[in-house]
Design a protein around this nucleic acid. Structure first.
Lengths: 155, 155
DNA sequence: CAGATATATTTGCGCTTACAATCATTGAGA
DNA sequence: TCTCAATGATTGTAAGCGCAAATATATCTG
């Protein structure tokens, strides 16, 4: 630790970050509304579409999403009703449920991806210089690595 | 717009960001638990403590927090019950309610601030070089400025 | 093999939040 | 002044999510 307080520069960086991330999320979410998808729905479809056979066990999917198991159950309800995802029971282990993206879901994702990419560009990437984009990645990889190790002293 | 797709570098930056911010928020939130405060509660106390007379109209406070009016009403309920915030009716305009931080609230904030600052340092600032801290501020000011202007073409 | 333990998922419940409706008060125009 | 739109706050309602409990199945242990 460097000091018990934040320098002016540190404070400015922290405040800029804290005040902006919610607005950014809201903007990205708003741009998905025309596709009838929430950001959370979109993430489900992306992860499933990138998975083998387009499917994943519920528990693996909830880990990927950083969502609780119950949260995932309810999130899937909507996607199943929209016919974007199907639930199929595991054959070898009958406890497990697989969430699998349907062809409807793949089509919906294909329609949404260009707008979403454009949205990420518009609100984030294109606001930055190439050097800043690189810095952004470096910064959050460093922060993410730190959070992973979670080196709390006491616990 | 530069391109309809993301370059590898852009994708890496975006994914690092997207995967990390929720973890960071969770870590900061967890470090406030011993103080019996959520991050949202903490923000309320900070904003009120920095305001004239330690109080703010509900609507101004909800704007500062980026919270809906109804959300603020319910959030204050908890802080009022904890005696950290008091509601007082406006004198000139009897529609307005002021949320004002109590001395209990100021004490609670004083107790929490050092831990929170340490938390921000541990999880964010100290993971970065000074140059990265500066870059972080520049990046999110640029992004925030862009979101403010919201230059959507169609609407 | 039986019983205990672990794992995968869903359901019950409560918390937080936003949107829409409601109520109270203010300010502006006829 | 009286009316009506605008403003500030709260309440009703619903959606999203996590925790704990419940359920079903699998695995380990004696």
């Amino acid at each position: 630790m460097t000091s018990g307080r934040l320098t002016a520069t540190e404070m400015r960086a922290w405040r800029a970050y804290a005040e902006t991330i919610d607005h950014l999320r809201a903007a990205l979410e708003a741009d998905l509304v025309p596709h009838g998808l929430s950001l959370g729905d979109y993430e489900v479809l992306v992860i499933l579409s990138e998975s083998v056979d387009g499917r994943l066990r519920m528990c693996d999917l909830s880990n990927e999403l950083g969502l609780s198991p119950s949260g995932l159950t309810r999130r899937l309800d909507g996607l199943v009703k929209a016919d974007y995802v199907a639930r199929t029971q595991g054959t070898s282990d009958r406890r497990v449920m697989y969430a699998s993206i349907t062809s409807e879901g793949r089509h919906a994702l294909q329609r949404a991806v260009p707008d979403h990419v454009r949205s990420v560009r518009t609100h984030l990437i294109d606001r930055l210089t190439p050097a800043q984009v690189t810095a952004l990645g470096d910064i959050f990889r460093a922060v993410g690595d730190g959070l992973g190790r979670q080196s709390r002293s006491g616990t």
